[in-house]
């Protein structure tokens, strides 16, 4: 079906979210808790992607990352009211995670006014849950959101070193605010209170993955020797094979 986003005709399939249709058409809607790796499914946590939907003369504000397109709607991605609310959300997120450089620059970008509300000094996490989803996707589910309300946080069970954690650091890689600490020194990686021995690439000798990660992937299929090379070297080896292919 065809919907209108900011006056522009956009093709969408039934059940697709507004955000996904808009992204494909190159229309920008700001997001923080959305990542395209999760099959176009949004979470509706940060609420930054809110837009105005008009259908049969009725207007309402919805989050574009979760709103499924089922009819020929008209969407406005920006208005005075929407911008005011986005500004408030950015302000609230900045107060929650003032140490995040992303939120610092968004705070300025949105022209938020200084107020005297308390912030959490040193905090970077905005509880977007992307790390939890990434961990789940990796197959380990070592971290989760725990507690509720203002006590909510991402943690391993009982804040102890999690048995299932592979040390893959996918959580840190996906984090939009660099809130997850990964320490690497002398062939050891420390993440989520757990220490991992790093394996060196068979070719270049650089440390590239944890032993647990390689063993876990190895158990999932037949990858032969490839698993023992770092991503860089694997690419180079593959390129060489293609070049030599006759």
């Amino acid at each position: 079906m065809i919907i209108l986003i900011d006056g522009q005709e956009v093709k969408a399939s039934s059940g697709e979210t507004i955000l996904s249709a808009a992204r494909r058409a190159g229309i920008h809607i700001p997001t923080l808790c959305y990542h395209e790796n999760f099959a176009g499914q949004g979470q509706g946590r940060c609420r930054l992607c809110l837009v105005e939907v008009e259908y049969q003369g009725v207007k309402r504000i919805v989050t574009s990352c979760t709103y499924p397109i089922t009819a020929q709607i008209k969407v406005r991605t920006s208005s005075l009211r929407i911008e005011q609310m986005r500004k408030n959300i950015v302000m609230l997120l900045y107060k929650q995670a003032p140490a995040s450089s992303l939120l610092q620059s968004m705070y300025c970008e949105y022209g938020c006014q200084e107020n005297l509300l308390q912030d959490n000094p040193g905090e970077k996490c905005i509880l977007c849950n992307l790390c939890v989803l990434a961990c789940e996707e990796m197959g380990s589910s070592a971290i989760s959101l725990i507690m509720r309300g203002t006590d909510k946080k991402v943690a391993t069970p009982y804040d102890e070193a999690a048995q299932t954690c592979l040390g893959c650091a996918a959580c840190a890689a996906i984090c939009p605010t660099q809130a997850i600490e990964v320490m690497e020194r002398d062939g050891v990686r420390i993440i989520w209170n757990k220490e991992f021995k790093l394996l060196n690439c068979k070719h270049c000798g650089q440390p590239f993955a944890t032993e647990e990660q390689i063993n876990f992937v190895d158990s999932k299929g037949n990858y032969s020797d490839m698993l023992h090379y770092c991503q860089n070297c694997r690419q180079k080896m593959a390129a060489r094979r293609i070049k030599d292919f006759r």
Binding site: G44, R45, L48, N88, M147, R148, G149, T150
Partner: peptide, 22 residues
């Protein structure tokens, strides 16, 4: 409500906290 908000979405979790603060 600040204690019982699930904390999933930002306006509820952070908004209630700051309203309570005021």
């Amino acid at each position: 409500l600040a204690g019982e908000s699930c904390g999933k979405c930002v306006p509820c979790r952070e908004g209630i906290r700051h309203m309570l603060e005021i």
